[in-house]
Amino acid sequence: MLSNEDWVVDSNLSIDVSFVKNILNCFDESALEMTLKLSDYVKGLNIPINLTALTIGDKKLDTYLKTLYALRFDKALRINNNEDIRFLPQIVAHVISQYVKEINKQDVIILGRQSGEGDNGKTPLLVAEILKWPCITQVINIEADKEDTLKVTNMVDGGILTQIIRTPCVLSVGNAPNSYMRVPTLRDKMKYGKREIDVLEIDEFNIKALLDTCRNECELKSLEKISHERQGVIIEGKTPAEKARILYDSYLKERLEKL
């Protein structure tokens, strides 16, 4: 969404993205839709299911949580945070796991595999490590099996794995074929989407000391724009044959060989 001139890095190494529309990142959106499908399915089997949505960030995120209420999540929670944790997945994982351990026990934690800003790709893995739960990565489908088992499909190197697994576990959602979340009707928004969002402060999760440690252990030094612009080099030559020769020798030969 941002054009080239927008990628301005300030002295805190942050980028102002406030003038473009927020969207859910595709992995999170897939994860949410998978969760809703799982919930539909489980409800159909008359197995009780309770859905909690948790996010960490500022008030802007409440609109997504309200949508999730309208889509019949049982609880929507925001952990209020103004610290820069874009590149500190350890903090995110710490908060999530502490919430699950101490405040609201869960059988399954479903997460998108990475965010569009930090691109860390670590949070779900760290949550699993902290909780000492097993983890499945690159999940593309979740189905109900029995009360304490799930049928999970994920991409692995060289193929697709479908496993029946016992909970508890952490599921990290990858490039699923379906990446859009359903849309609640106006009526459901009115009926269910007006509930207050639960808010906790991130300070309640004792992150102060951890913040300093993490920032020191993995310190962001710089952010630089990667150029994706093409050069549009025009080949000069007297005849088409000459141009074709130049194209082949200088630009094409090596690329063809690599294919």
Binding site: S18, F19, V20, K21, N22, K60, T63
Partner: peptide, 8 residues
């Protein structure tokens, strides 16, 4: 407005 300008 929310559809196009949710960010403000």
């Amino acid at each position: 407005g929310a559809y196009h300008f949710s960010h403000f």
